[in-house]
Design a protein around this nucleic acid. Structure first.
Lengths: 213, 213, 213, 213
DNA sequence: CATGAATGAGAATTCATTCAT
DNA sequence: TATGAATGAATTCTCATTCAT
């Protein structure tokens, strides 16, 4: 029961995710999702009480995944600056590859219920950076004034770095993306690095995987 | 004639703005705006051909103002880092004060037509910073690898810095705002400052200034 | 599936037809049709993408039927003049019986999309006559200068003949209708008959048959 | 007063006419007419109590003109067949040249109030033909069964002859028009001519003028 | 008298949600 | 349980008509 139900739920969420990736939240309609999942509309309502709830869980699941990747990186060995850059690179690289999905998660339509989830995860991601920054400050490799602001700004910086150049629906070459990711990572690090700035680590080492299909 | 029409247009835009400030774009419906403006729905259509156009102009007018303020600051005298910080501060301070409006302008749902306008202005804001960075590099007060990436990241950083903490409808004290604005400005500057970093405030003093909580 | 959908579509078209029959295209509104069909407005949109499409199909289905009847007759055995008269008679008789519907189909207001369909079918009806005239000319039973003009004029003649006397919403006795139909058929035939004219009825007998009034 | 008012009324009607010629009844909106007349909407209401009334008078005035031209031709000297052909030619030629206007008068949108006017004039035109046919019958140059039907069919024939080939907005060369007009006139005559058919008179002799600007 | 901005009823269309099968 | 047709409230947009200036 619960097992089967869990499967169905994640099937539906996956369908919703693919819909949003292709057309943004604008296209996220119950009909569309049902079609993408190969089920009837009514079925969705057996697993999710409302569209808002579906959206909320969608945002939640995507964010959750990002969060856990970053948390893992943050828990790695090594100096904080290295891990910070790695985290930024990872997030940026994944966002780049996920196309419109990442964009939709930060900048697109939301009803209040979804906004809540978004804020919750945003806060948790911030927490990851906060922890990193805090550790870096302790080991004197990073220098930050306000942990909250800094982590938020870092998030904004690499998000904008990702979506800014990419008008929705544009493609970039792998090389371009790699370069951009690197620039972004450097930018973020420099903003918080203690002088003399830590040398950037080579890319790809920490680039785990792209954002879920 | 045109003068009177201009007045009416801006009256309606003002009404729309107030609607968005209170309830976000979600509440921006033709009848809501009409009610807020104290006119009939049809009247709006005398001045704006469609809701999309109204939205676009709303976003445009708000963004335009921000943009011109920043352009003004960027053209001032003085070293680039100072102007850069001033521009960031200005935007952040104004955005904080505008409450939900800024949030809506930066991050909320919209149709493609409006999104266009939003992206256009974001790009222009980026351009302002690009110019500043370029000047700073020339005078060796700033240090950036890639102008495009850096300016984009700065834009993202301070925008997220503003809307990140701003759960829609939250209030902050004047002091908190002032502090946040300052943090954001410092963050942005440090990311691009040439070593030894220009210090808006003495580093030691602020290194301890983390929020008590 | 498709079968059930087809049924529903034709149910809706039938409802639309009855609305038009009673009140002309003027009354053809989505809620009127919905009411006539005993469904909710939204339901119509499951089967027709827009009002224009519904109208177009309505006109199309009615015209299609007329067209196929005439084509059938035109393909029969026998001399062209006989078939020509039969075709005209058939159309006129059916149109008279359909009341305001025929009027609406032939002469009433519509949007461009519907007008297209209407014109297309008119043209096809013309084509039927063109073929008949061509055959008649070959067998020397008909005499026409220009096939296109003649077939078009015939179409116009009997259509006007039908809707001309039909002020929307007027009733006529069966006998009156039969007479009118016959007159129209004779008129059309005579315009293209080769001398000596084929006489459907002896000329002297009918020369006096003008309506008593 | 009345004189000045009459002038204004006809100015407005003229404007309405030009609007319909260009865009059909679909474009006949109070705003559009006002613009075309160079007056304010309110002004129209000083001279016409409603849009319906304006439409009715528009149809009336156009029809009136046609009617009087035909009446004049019908009253000329000469055998009925000649005058009949002349009348058809005149109407057809004028209709061809008037473009969409003629089309709008017979085949386009109408509210019930306008329909009345149209029917009234249609009847009067029919009367003209009836008279001609009646005279022709008396002098044994024409042969008709039912005067009403025949006159209606004639009207339909040449109207369709005019609008059938002309998809709205198409242009035809002067030569093409002349030829078509002639074909139509011949067609109509033959439908009612007594055998042996009267020879067609040369065109242009009776082509008075085109439908009012 | 003329103006034209304002009105607001009316019509089309969308889409989350329900419920009979 | 699953289905997907049906629902109908909500929203945008149009345009004849009115009325203060």
């Amino acid at each position: 029961m619960t097992k089967r139900a869990e499967k169905k739920r994640s099937l539906l969420l996956k369908a919703a995710r693919s819909v949003v990736r292709d057309g943004g939240f604008r296209e996220l309609q119950m009909n569309t999702v049902a079609a993408a999942a190969g089920v009837a509309v009514g079925t969705i309502y057996r697993y999710f009480p409302s569209k808002a709830q579906l959206c909320a869980e969608l945002v939640g699941s995507v964010s959750e995944r990002e969060l856990s990747v970053m948390q893992e990186i943050a828990k790695d060995e090594g100096p904080a600056p290295v891990r910070l850059q790695a985290a930024v690179r990872s997030f940026a690289a994944r966002a780049f590859k996920s196309g419109r999905l990442a964009y939709a998660m930060i900048a697109e339509p939301v009803d209040p219920e979804v906004e809540d989830v978004r804020l919750r995860y945003r806060a948790e991601i911030s927490t990851v950076f906060k922890q990193l920054l805090s550790e870096g400050r302790a080991e004197e490799s990073l220098q930050v004034l306000d942990l909250d602001t800094a982590s938020t700004c870092i998030t904004g910086a690499f998000m904008e770095g990702v979506i800014g150049p990419l008008s929705p629906g544009e493609e970039a070459s792998a090389a371009e993306i790699e370069r951009a990711v690197e620039q972004i990572a450097v930018f973020c690090l420099r903003a918080v690095a203690a002088p003399p700035p830590i040398q950037a680590t080579p890319p790809d080492a920490t680039d785990r995987s792209e954002i879920a299909s």
